[in-house]
């Protein structure tokens, strides 16, 4: 299951006067993997928070053509509860929704296996590496089988090696579950590798300056990173970014 959504002239000005986001309109198809790319402070995170309902838009709205999709959110940091085990962290969304503990923990265990953390169910966050913590965070976001997965620069703090490994894992999970993925990043190469479509936002207030399709088929293998097709898409994006880098 997945849901498409439409951003309809979405804008956000904070009470202190900061215009984070200009009027952003975009249709995001059900099951698509879309990246929001742009320099820091161009309202990319604000878009995710508006979709998640964590902020109210100043103007415009988020439309759900069918029913409002269920959401998963992956933050920049793993954002785990330090006082409790990986499994209990992952079980949180289910338990908050009222699922019985034993059933929720069992599903959490399965979700942890899916992200390669079988055997770490009882580990505390501080006993895990940065990459493993992020995997727990991914498992938690996916445990309730969301229609839409919102990701706010989730791998920005990780080393290159861990990051590309997690990119592959994310694509594998997306292929299995077919959620609608909205991925915020400021890495051109990460955006190209992951996405079917890249929305480029300019600096404050964030505005859509380019909407680039990436036709490369999935599954994308690590070899794609050095292919001519990859370079062509990256070139398009860099050209679009060139135009806004002066603002």
């Amino acid at each position: 299951m997945s849901s498409g959504l439409r951003l309809d002239r979405l804008a956000k000005t904070f009470p202190n006067g900061t215009a984070a986001l200009g009027e952003l309109s975009a249709d995001i198809a059900a099951g698509a993997f879309v990246s929001l790319l742009g320099p820091s402070g161009c309202g990319k995170s604000t878009v995710l928070r508006l979709i998640a309902g964590l902020e109210e838009p100043t103007l415009g709205r988020v439309d759900w053509p069918q029913t409002r999709g269920s959401l998963g959110f992956i933050f920049q940091e793993p954002t785990l509860m330090a006082w409790t085990s990986a499994a209990k962290n992952v079980a949180l969304p289910l338990e908050l929704a009222g699922m019985a503990k034993t059933q929720a923990r069992e599903r959490a265990r399965v979700a942890l296996e899916k992200v390669g953390l079988a055997g770490f169910a009882d580990a505390l966050p501080r006993e895990l590496s940065g990459g493993m913590r992020m995997r727990v965070s991914i498992a938690r976001a996916l445990v309730a089988d969301p229609d839409v997965l919102l990701m706010d620069e989730p791998f920005a703090a990780l080393d290159e090696f861990t990051r590309s490994k997690l990119n592959d894992d994310l694509l594998r999970l997306w292929a299995e579950r077919r959620f609608t993925g909205i991925f915020v990043t400021h890495s051109v190469f990460e955006a190209v590798y992951l996405s079917q479509r890249i929305l480029i936002l300019s600096g404050r207030p964030g505005r859509l300056v380019a909407d680039i399709e990436n036709p490369a088929p999935y599954p994308r293998e690590p070899g794609y990173r050095t292919s001519a097709a990859f370079n062509a898409t990256a070139r398009d994006i860099l050209d679009a970014l060139e135009e806004i880098s002066t603002c």
């Binding site: 928070r49 959110f73 933050f75 954002t79 509860m81 949180l92 908050l96």
Partner: peptide, 20 residues
């Protein structure tokens, strides 16, 4: 961020208080 996560999953005050 954790507070946002609890809001996202529509936790009520009691759940947020005890669990977070």
């Amino acid at each position: 961020n954790l507070r946002d996560l609890f809001r996202l999953y529509r936790a009520d005050f009691r759940q947020t208080f005890i669990r977070l």
